[in-house]
Amino acid sequence: MTPEFVYGVDFSGATDAERNVWIAGGRLTDDGLDIGTLGTAKSVLDGDVSGQAETHAGLVDWLREREPAAVGLDFSFGLPSTLLDAVDDPPADWGAFLDSFPPADCADPDGFEDWGKQRTREATGGERAFLKRETDGPVGASSPYGFIGSTITYYGVRDVLAPLVRGSDGGEAVATVAPMQEQSFEAPLTLLETYPAGVLGRLGLQRRNYKGASEAEREARRRNLDGLLAAADLTVDDADRETVVENTGGDALDAVVAAAAALRAVESGFAVERGRYDEREGYIYV
């Protein structure tokens, strides 16, 4: 099933996720992707979305209705193989990892981070606390269970990926994940992992210091958006363009960048680059 829509989601595990999750995307046309939706979860999702759990559940419900679509999500979809092998029954593939997440006794992101650090130290003789996946290093991504990544990895995999791919709370499974699962075009939704900073880096744009209220940071967002539009088949209207430039957190821009990464993945048939893909760990599309 070829996607008719493409979206990018700038994810957040914050308590006020309704204001920090941003969604961008729209319908595919003969000219590329028309960004017809851009806003926070609170403004885009249906119902009275407020709070972390409510926002994540609302996002899942909203995505279930966006079909057929490809969606880029900016959190880690997996863990380094060293950690996967550190459990009593190591998962044989990515699907088995998803079934077993979160690890036992990891009741929250802090517990997840501690679990990862402890097993990393055991595996490296105390030399390391964090490891990256094969796909992380080449695009400059952080460890999935590090200080920056642990929260969004924990909630993203548990609250968004699992319900959509496996189904939960009475909801049907509606998604497959590229490239780890075969026949990505056959399900109503194709989900993929992306990393906005990595996309900006690939395009030679500014991957740091574009988030903030200073004039220099505002201009960095403008240049990044201009560079992205020049490099990808995207259209953004004047109102949304202004939203991206004026959003000091950079979340609006990141959502548009995530959508651009999803579009590029669709156009490539979800192809992967050699040398940075372990099928148990996941893959970042940039």
Rank of each mutant, 00 (worst) to 15 (best):
P109F: 10
D48R: 12
N224K: 00
R218A: 01
G282P: 04
G95E: 15
K211F: 09
E193P: 03
V44S: 11
L253N: 11
A70L: 15
L229G: 06
R221F: 00
E113C: 10
A41H: 08
D74V: 00
L253H: 07
Q118M: 04
A86N: 06
Q52A: 10
T124C: 00
P163A: 12
A162M: 02
K132V: 09
G47D: 08
T151Q: 12
K42P: 02
G149P: 09
R64I: 03
E219P: 14
E217C: 08
A255G: 07
T194Y: 01
S150G: 05
L263R: 03
P188D: 08
V49A: 13
G201C: 02
D16W: 05
D85E: 15
G32H: 01
K132Y: 06
L253W: 01
F185R: 13
W22R: 11
D237T: 12
T194S: 01
T190P: 10
E127W: 05
G140D: 04
V177H: 00
G204H: 11
E172I: 02
V272P: 04
T248W: 02
R264T: 00
L263C: 14
R222H: 13
D31T: 15
G198N: 00
L161R: 13
L33N: 12
Q206T: 01
A162R: 15
G170V: 11
L84T: 09
R121N: 08
G36H: 09
G25Y: 15
W94H: 15
R218M: 12
L191M: 15
A220S: 15
A70K: 11
G170N: 09
D34W: 04
A41I: 08
R276Q: 06
A141K: 06
V49M: 10
F97A: 05
G116K: 06
E134N: 02
G249E: 07
V256L: 11
Y154E: 07
D278E: 13
E215C: 06
L205V: 01
G72E: 15
L33D: 00
G39C: 05
G201M: 09
F112K: 11
K42N: 06
V71L: 14
N247Y: 07
D93F: 12
R202I: 05
V9K: 10
G282R: 00
A178D: 04
T153N: 04
E242L: 10
S12L: 10
E193V: 09
Q118S: 09
D46Q: 15
G156I: 03
F270T: 13
G47H: 12
G269V: 14
H56A: 03
E127S: 11
L229C: 02
L191E: 14
V157E: 11
V272K: 09
Q206I: 02
N209C: 01
T124D: 10
P102M: 10
R158V: 02
E54M: 09
